[in-house]
Design a protein around this nucleic acid. Sequence first.
DNA 1: ACTCATGCTGAATCTCTGT
DNA 2: TACAGAGATTCAGCATGAG
Lengths: 366, 366
Amino acid sequence: MTKHVKGAEALPLNQILEGDCIDVMNSLPAGSVDLIFADPPYNLQLKGELHRPDNSKVDAVDDHWDQFNSFRAYDEFTTAWLKAARRLLKPNGAIWVIGSYHNIFRVGASLQNEGFWILNDVVWRKSNPMPNFRGKRFTNAHETMIWAGKDEASKYTFNYEALKALNEGIQMRSDWVLPICTGHERLKDEQGDKAHPTQKPESLLHRVLVGSTNPGDVVLDPFFGTGTTGAVAKMLGREFIGIEREAAYRKVAEKRIANVRKFDKEALTVSASKRAQPRVPFGQLVERGMLRPGEELYSMNKRHKAKVRADGTLIGDDIKGSIHQVGAHLEGAPSCNGWTYWCYRTEGKMVPIDVLRQQIRSEMHD
Amino acid sequence: MTKHVKGAEALPLNQILEGDCIDVMNSLPAGSVDLIFADPPYNLQLKGELHRPDNSKVDAVDDHWDQFNSFRAYDEFTTAWLKAARRLLKPNGAIWVIGSYHNIFRVGASLQNEGFWILNDVVWRKSNPMPNFRGKRFTNAHETMIWAGKDEASKYTFNYEALKALNEGIQMRSDWVLPICTGHERLKDEQGDKAHPTQKPESLLHRVLVGSTNPGDVVLDPFFGTGTTGAVAKMLGREFIGIEREAAYRKVAEKRIANVRKFDKEALTVSASKRAQPRVPFGQLVERGMLRPGEELYSMNKRHKAKVRADGTLIGDDIKGSIHQVGAHLEGAPSCNGWTYWCYRTEGKMVPIDVLRQQIRSEMHD
DNA sequence: ACTCATGCTGAATCTCTGT
DNA sequence: TACAGAGATTCAGCATGAG
């Protein structure tokens, strides 16, 4: 356990800071965190946790009024920690918040009110939920996570290809089927009771962190509890900052994280997006003699052809321009990826020109 | 189409009332309705056009009724119709509201503020959602419904046994897998285009009405559209009241409901659908910690090995990809079932990874 | 009659960089 | 900061028509 650092210069990485999360967050430098994962409390009875600015006492009131007041207190608490969290985020940072129907609607509305931009709501579908014993409602078999950018303009991190790979080649959906935290993973205290009432499974954080951070990113969890976020961040080679008020939770989390080993570097390399690959202008294929000026290219569907010019543009029957422009014009389409649209002839076969680009890229890695 | 009745004495049953839903609701007698099902505008805030990778244009929901100037304007609208709706409910009445992440958090918070008591949030998991075409977010594969009683004391209707029967003898959960409305069920206008941009599937309303109403109950839908609520209510022997502003939608709904026949009693017994073996992506074994990134897998014939990566892909000597791709490449085969090809080492023995998949599947049936 | 290939569509807040 | 241009991007289900 480490006291948090006063002053804005140093970021206390891979530590669990002690104290109230709003105070601690306000003591850290603005714009320094890549991702926040938050599992806020939603026990409306514990008004002490709820940070009402005025400690005004509510008169004896009917249930409805009292309920309204506890919602209002919860909203004030939510708004306060969200403001502090948003200040900490880098411009392209993002936040995840998890909750149930008791609090998630208030959290979501507050997120929007504070200027966060919701990207998805993601449903954690529990494969082994507790049944509804009295048979009066549906089995409460899911929790809701909200993923939001710092603002509408944020260029948030989204490792599309890695998530698609995790899902065996199909784009990852907004509903995730994962078991609740049980067995060996569930931390126990010295009496053998569960150390924390709502410990989240590491599988959930694995998917969140693989999907929305890169290795080396700073991940902050203002309601750290027994440290699932920190443990998974360490495994995945991300830096974490935890904040937790309760000494008992901090103690369990410290021990837990000390026992975690980071995965191999090789294992952490994740399927990369094409967007991250170096850009190769089409003209290079001509300069390098892979294609010759005057050579003809054919569209995938074989309905069109065009000639390569020395400057790396194409000329068709009634159009000249880039590989993309000519393709789009010929197809009457708003846009066209010329790399996959055009083929050249070699050894009697038609081969997409993207193969030549791949060749150049692989040479660049040598 | 019938004009709504002025005066509080008579309830206009099984009719579609014309006009703004708040005005019409306020003209009906208080405390007269058992259930409200509401599918309000989602306030999507779409900006530009969106094209599929094949360049076809997505038919966006850009209707005038979905336009609001601000969150505040949307909140005022929501609060107003919820107040009118709550007045109409009998003391033991309940409400369902459906929405997406664009609006559901604001709707949920307003419900709580107005004194409704949330019973469950229910997730409609779409079996065939529209993908995310640009690869920038998760597939938006679900919508959220909130089920709430008029107040905390309401003795709401919940047909536990009927729902359990619908679910092959297992308690109904808060996540429902149902397909979107397509094919013959999707209503068309005279031009053959979809009659309504957001028609809901009858299966969804079937489950809502079987679960939370009794035969003869009065069900009100203030955003009636093309009348799915009315059609299913009629089939199930419930009374409905619809409210709809747009004449075109009312016309389609009238015709639709006229063609609906109430089910025979036997027909209400739903045939059990055979459950397919759920697909388990290999990545889940990694997320769940059954295999660790960096761990080595061995081929059945022990001639090859490969390392697990954090995104659920494998990396071999000169190849990376899915368990199937890497297996096929190493064997020089056109395809390979990675589940039976790869083994992991545990307690000195080699065990096929398919054993781990079976473990996950058995958990899913609990 | 049956299979297979092709085409269309669904509540969607859906790009990034250089000039 | 607005604009232009490069270039990256899809799953399930149903309808239609060819073989």
